[in-house]
Design a protein around this nucleic acid. Structure first.
Lengths: 213, 213, 213, 213
DNA sequence: AATGAATGAGAGTTCATTCAT
DNA sequence: GATGAATGAACTCTCATTCAT
């Protein structure tokens, strides 16, 4: 409360660019917390579990964060920002691709980030829906923005005739994101085939459906 | 532990078929618990919240159930059984329909049960993945059976040429169920258009994808 | 509180002398409660355990007793009264025996009642010391009376020269009763040799000690 | 469960030998718990009572112990170990005494430790018999060892002709220990005369009995 | 930067007790 | 006489949080 978590501790070793110890611990806490949140949910995860995994004592966490919620907030933010950035980046990298290619790139970026890049992202997707309104509220703007990004992309594609005209955009976006996000429930990086492969199959299903033409 | 929850107490009022009081309370507890589990998750839900919603005191719940976990177990079982039954029933009702019609019926039954019929079902889908292994284990057989039911249906359709041959069945089943289950995250019966409408749109997307032919 | 436990329910079947049902249940409750109190102590024993053993439901006990404490009170009273009666009876039966014979008879009666006749008695001995003052108080008069009975008997014996004069009576009484009461801690009627045998050995030790003469 | 109670935390103040804070609290908890267990029994004693007496809150106890049972276990162990050590020590101190002197020393050490030295010991003696089998089991080996120690000592004395030959050792040991242990039920250090005095009288009774020679 | 020790609120659970039937 | 269903208080235990060191 009174103590403000320092995000930018005074650096001593600028020259050598050694990251300050505090920064390292902070990141570690976030990482293990994200992992636990994803596996067990937010409220089933205790600060002691987080501390254990991070090799410290529960009390020490409070040097880096003001509360359990503060950790959650940062994870939610980071997770969504990361997936958003990845999607935008991979779409932009295409340059002037077809709408179809853009959507395809977005799908792949979303899935890869979700399943392979970042526990933050998967924690976000899995935990968000069960959070109390109070917490959700803070993250809604970014969520909306991400939704809008997809909507815009899909609208453009539909206008260009690359999506059938009778399809409504918002339900479509929910369908696509839902099909992807649900993979968190079962995908296991150690057991399943590659994320790339999964992304390819998913893209195909979304584009062409299951029926033969 | 020792006390066995009685599901079929000796009825005195057979003629009038008045459900015994205990059965009513038991059902009420299950129903409100399912609702809360769905909204907040299992471990964020307290027995006192359940009791409040059911109009009784926390201790009274223990007359009907042995533990919080026992409530969860019954909800998980009921939820999956219900969706399974509904899907089977609506597929069987078709009689000798095309594979396409069967899949379509299954999708609708799954979605309707999930979103409209039963909190048990939506609680199940939403909560299951974050549960400790120990609890999951008990419900895995039924989950597997339900997956197999879909797989069989999809395999038959593919053999009959109604699903493109290059599509792998297991990932396909996960795609379909995932797209449906995720609706629990955002669908609000009060705000959104009808479940039927959602089911129709979903079926179309699964069958035909988004691309124009 | 308001309802008074009926100890003398209106008898319908005086002629046939069939004990009224209520009396039977009441006795049963007392008996199983005494057994449990002896084994586990008073506060570790629950009314549900008592009810289970008596083949009824916890609530039903309240038809016969006002509270758990009321059961305890009656057991304590019965237990001590029984041992007291038995001891007095067996001493009186001797008629004009020697002091030595009286003491010997008292020892045997105490031990036999304690270990073989009555769970009430053993429950009493085992439980009394750990009870709150409030409960103990009610039973102190009878306890004192029993103690005095022994003291009188021992004083008489000492006056008659059958107990060495340098021995103080009160510590002696405590020594004798303690040595006997402690047997409750280990004596198991199913495994050990007869109570009679134990009584004989105990008497010998008390009279002659361990040293050879 | 996972947390192991540290009995030997790294000391900083070796020189001054200031006991670490945690050790002090731990000991305090054990001490007041033993006192309460002895007075009221194990299951009538609540953690809040223990905490109150120790000047802390109930939850804080869990920093030092894993459960109420863990406290009990340690008390039982400590209590028996202490009496065992005291008896062995005082017998060994005699050097080459007569058997009679050894037994006399053992009796005194047992009684003094029981009534004057240690609440752990008296709690042990008073509480053990009413404990559930599960808990008793853990402490049976030490109990057996203590019993054997007495048996050996008594057998030696009998072989040397210092105990009458017709006396059976095991019942004798039970008689002696029982007569001593029962003192816990009534002895009050504030009201009664000295423990030493009690020990002397008890020894005399055990050795010579009550009859004049 | 981190820990040891504690706290207070609240968790799931138990239990003596009540009372309408 | 006995039960089914419930209550309220208290229980053991957990957990986010605090703070002196």
């Amino acid at each position: 409360m009174k103590r403000v978590a320092k995000r930018e501790p005074k650096r001593k070793n600028v020259a050598l660019s050694v990251p300050p110890k505090s920064h390292v611990s902070r990141d570690l806490i976030l990482r293990v917390a994200a992992q636990l949140f994803r596996q067990q949910g937010y409220s089933a995860t205790t600060l002691r579990q987080i501390a254990d995994k991070a090799g410290m004592k529960a009390g020490s966490i409070y040097y880096h964060f003001d509360s359990k919620t503060a950790i959650l907030d940062e994870i939610l933010e980071l997770g969504l920002q990361r997936i958003f950035d990845a999607v935008k980046a991979s779409v932009n990298d295409l340059g002037k691709g077809s709408h179809r290619n853009k959507i395809s790139a977005a799908i792949k970026a979303h899935l890869v980030t979700l399943l392979q890049e970042s526990d933050y992202t998967s924690a976000n997707m899995r935990v968000y829906g069960q959070l109390p309104e109070r917490i959700k509220k803070r993250h809604r703007p970014l969520r909306r923005a991400y939704g809008k990004y997809w909507d815009d992309m899909l609208v453009d594609a539909q206008r260009a005739g690359e999506i059938r005209p009778e399809i409504l955009i918002v339900p479509l976006r929910r369908f696509i994101l839902g099909a992807m996000n649900w993979t968190v429930e079962w995908f296991d990086a150690r057991k399943n085939s590659s994320v790339q492969d999964l992304a390819d199959r998913t893209t195909l299903l979304i584009f062409n459906g299951i029926l033969p033409h």
